[in-house]
Amino acid sequence: MRYSEKIISFIEEHYHEDVNLDQLAEEIHLSISYISRIFHQETGGRLVDYLTARRIKQACRLLGTTDLPVEQIGIIVGFPNASYFNHLFKKVLGTTPLKYRKNN
């Protein structure tokens, strides 16, 4: 199994938590700097972008299938606060979570 697969597996299990490189390094038994470098080499992407995309994907699912408030969805998927969730959601998808919910 490639290191990137182990990293992705960890993220899939913990994306909704406050994931940090220290936890990841301990879990995979690699240094913090090596984790970022090997992930980029093996996937072509940045670790933080993958984590953000995973959280946004789950947020989209929840926005489309639940009536939970947007703020609560942001927290459920691992964003520290509603404004940061709204900011990243709009940056990634070009629309706000509320508009996404209305259109989907």
Rank of each mutant, 00 (worst) to 15 (best):
29 H>R: 13
53 A>Q: 14
57 K>H: 12
11 I>N: 00
32 I>C: 02
16 H>I: 03
31 S>A: 11
22 D>C: 05
34 Y>H: 13
14 H>Q: 11
33 S>A: 11
18 D>H: 13
23 Q>M: 15
18 D>G: 03
41 Q>P: 01
28 I>T: 14
21 L>N: 04
8 I>N: 06
46 R>E: 12
29 H>A: 12
33 S>R: 14
16 H>C: 08
59 A>T: 10
12 E>W: 05
21 L>Y: 10
61 R>W: 08
40 H>E: 02
37 R>P: 00
23 Q>A: 09
48 V>D: 14
23 Q>I: 10
37 R>V: 06
54 R>E: 13
23 Q>H: 12
39 F>D: 02
24 L>W: 04
55 R>S: 03
58 Q>T: 12
47 L>T: 08
14 H>P: 08
46 R>C: 05
52 T>N: 10
27 E>V: 09
36 S>N: 10
38 I>V: 14
40 H>L: 08
60 C>E: 15
33 S>I: 04
20 N>E: 03
25 A>L: 09
14 H>K: 14
16 H>K: 08
25 A>G: 14
19 V>Y: 10
51 L>D: 02
56 I>M: 05
41 Q>S: 12
41 Q>W: 07
55 R>I: 01
22 D>V: 15
18 D>W: 05
55 R>A: 01
20 N>T: 03
58 Q>R: 11
21 L>A: 01
32 I>Y: 09
31 S>N: 12
51 L>Q: 04
34 Y>K: 11
61 R>A: 06
16 H>L: 03
58 Q>K: 15
33 S>Y: 07
43 T>S: 07
41 Q>D: 14
55 R>Q: 09
27 E>I: 03
12 E>H: 12
8 I>M: 15
19 V>G: 01
14 H>T: 15
58 Q>S: 12
11 I>W: 00
44 G>R: 09
8 I>S: 09
57 K>F: 07
29 H>Q: 13
27 E>P: 00
25 A>Q: 09
13 E>L: 05
14 H>I: 07
20 N>M: 01
32 I>G: 01
30 L>W: 10
34 Y>N: 09
49 D>P: 06
